[in-house]
Design a protein around this nucleic acid. Structure first.
Lengths: 154, 154
DNA sequence: ATACCTGCAAAGTGTTTGCAATTGT
DNA sequence: ACAATTGCAAACACTTTGCAGGTAT
C-alpha cells in the first residue's frame, strides 16, 4: 500500500473540485458535506439512504441537494451507478476500487461483493465485433446467501 | 429442435396455471391476456411498455392488473427481472431461453444481447465457498454502440 | 455585483393499494 | 354462494423542477 486512504480521498476530492471549477460551477457547503458522507460510506447506497443518513446526522442538506450532488459526483466520476433490477438506483464510490461484481440474496436482498477475475475477455471479443465500445461491465449473481439457507425454507 | 415454439409456450402456460391453482388462485381473463402478450414479446420490456401495448391493442386490462400479473409471472418463474441501473424494472420471459447477457449503449440506451459462454465458473467456485447458492446470473456491459460511434461525438 | 446554489413546495414518474363491483370456481 | 380478481382513483415512493432567497467568486 503506497497510498493511504486519506491520500486516495484527497485525490477524489481534487478530482471532484476540478471537475466543478472546470465546468464553471462552485464549491459549496452542500457539495462538500455530501462528498464527505459518500466517501465515508462502504459498499452500495441509495439516494434515499444517503438522505436519511444526512438527516440523522443533522447535516444541513435537503433532499433535492442530495440528488443534485449525487448527479455531480456521477458526472465527475467519483461514484458510479451499479445495476440492479430494483426500484432504486444504487451507487458506490469509485475510489481505491478494484473491479468487482455483486451477488444478491433474493430473500434478504443483501449483497456479497467479489473481485473481478477478468474472465470476461471472451465477451470483449464478441462485442468488439459488433462495433460496441466497452466502457465498463458488471456481473450480477442472484441466489440465496448462507444465512438464509441456514434459516431453512422461510 | 425437438420442441416447437408453440410447445414451449404451452409448457410455460401450464407452469403458470399450475402455479396459480396450487396457490389457490384463479385463472382469469386478465392473466391469460397478459400472459399471451408477454409471450409475444421479444427481448426486454418494462411494465410501462406492456401497459401501452395492451392499451393500443384495446385489451381490457388496466394498469394495476398488468403490474399484478407481472408479479404473478415472476413468482411462477415465467419471466425474470433483468438488472439494469435504471428507474424502470426490466423483464423478459424465460421460455426457450439460452443464457445470455446484455450490453447497453450509454447514449441511445439500446441493448445488445449475447450468449453466455460459461466463462464465469471461477465465480461459482468463489461464491460456493461463501455458502451462496447461485440461482442465476447476468453480466451487464455498458459502452457505446456502433451506430452512436458513427454519429460522432453527439 | 453577478452568477450559481439551496431549500421549499409542488410536479413528475413508476408502482402499489383500498374498495366496491365483477367474475371464476 | 363464496372468495378471488378487477378497475378506478387515490396513495406511495423515488426523483426532478420552479422559484425566491442565500452564497461563492
Amino acid at each position: 500500500m503506497l497510498k493511504t486512504n486519506a491520500h486516495m480521498i484527497h485525490n477524489e476530492r481534487t478530482k471532484f473540485l476540478r471537475h466543478l471549477t472546470q465546468a464553471g460551477r462552485r464549491i459549496s457547503k452542500g457539495r462538500e458535506v455530501i462528498f464527505d458522507e459518500v466517501m465515508r460510506s462502504h459498499g452500495h447506497f441509495t439516494a434515499e439512504e444517503l438522505v436519511k443518513e444526512c438527516q440523522q446526522k443533522k447535516l444541513k442538506v435537503s433532499r433535492p441537494t442530495v440528488f443534485r450532488v449525487l448527479h455531480d459526483l456521477l458526472e465527475a466520476g467519483v461514484i458510479r451507478e451499479t445495476a440492479f433490477g430494483d426500484k432504486h438506483r444504487h451507487f458506490e464510490h469509485v475510489y481505491d476500487e478494484k473491479p468487482h461484481h455483486h451477488a444478491q440474496c433474493v430473500r434478504c436482498h443483501r449483497f456479497i461483493e467479489f473481485p473481478d477475475r477478468r474472465e470476461d475477455k471472451v465477451y470483449h471479443t464478441y462485442l468488439k465485433k459488433q462495433g460496441f465500445k466497452i466502457l465498463g461491465h458488471e456481473m450480477h449473481f442472484y441466489g440465496i446467501c448462507r444465512k438464509c439457507q441456514d434459516k431453512g425454507d422461510l
